[in-house]
Simulated scan of single mutants.
Amino acid sequence: MERTRSAILTAAASVLARDRTATLPEIAKAAGVGRTTVHRYFPDRDTLIKAAVEDSVEVIGQAIAEAQVDEGTSVAALHRLVTAYLHVGDRLVFLFNDPHIMRGYGVEQPEEPLSTDPVLDLIVRGQQEGAFDGHVSPQWIQHVLWALVYTGIDEVNKGNMSRHGVAATVIRTLERGILA
Rank of each mutant, 00 (worst) to 15 (best):
M1K: 13
E2G: 14
T4W: 06
R5N: 12
R5P: 11
S6Y: 09
S6I: 04
S6E: 14
A7Q: 14
A7C: 07
I8F: 10
L9H: 10
L9T: 00
T10E: 15
V15D: 10
L16E: 09
A17L: 13
D19L: 13
T21A: 15
T21N: 13
A22K: 10
T23L: 05
T23Y: 05
T23H: 07
L24A: 05
P25C: 11
V33Y: 03
G34I: 11
R35K: 15
T36E: 11
H39Q: 12
R40E: 08
F42M: 06
P43A: 12
D44T: 01
T47V: 06
L48F: 07
L48G: 05
L48S: 09
A51Y: 00
A52V: 00
A52W: 01
V53M: 00
V53K: 00
E54P: 02
S56I: 03
V57A: 05
I60A: 00
Q62W: 09
A65H: 05
A67C: 03
V69R: 08
D70K: 04
T73V: 01
S74N: 04
S74H: 08
S74L: 01
A76F: 02
L78P: 01
R80M: 09
L81M: 09
V82N: 01
Y85D: 03
Y85M: 11
H87I: 07
V88K: 08
R91L: 05
V93H: 12
F94M: 09
D98S: 10
H100S: 01
G104I: 00
Y105G: 05
G106N: 01
E108V: 02
Q109I: 13
E111Y: 01
E111L: 02
P113S: 10
L114N: 04
T116K: 07
D117P: 00
P118Y: 04
P118R: 01
P118T: 02
L120G: 00
I123E: 06
R125E: 02
E129V: 05
E129Y: 04
G130I: 13
A131Q: 04
P138A: 15
Q139H: 02
I141D: 09
V144P: 03
L145W: 08
W146N: 11
L148H: 04
L148V: 07
V149I: 07
T151Y: 10
D154L: 08
N157G: 15
G159C: 12
S162R: 05
S162T: 13
R163I: 12
A167Y: 09
A168P: 09
T173Q: 13
R176P: 01
R176H: 11
L179I: 15
A180M: 13
A180S: 15
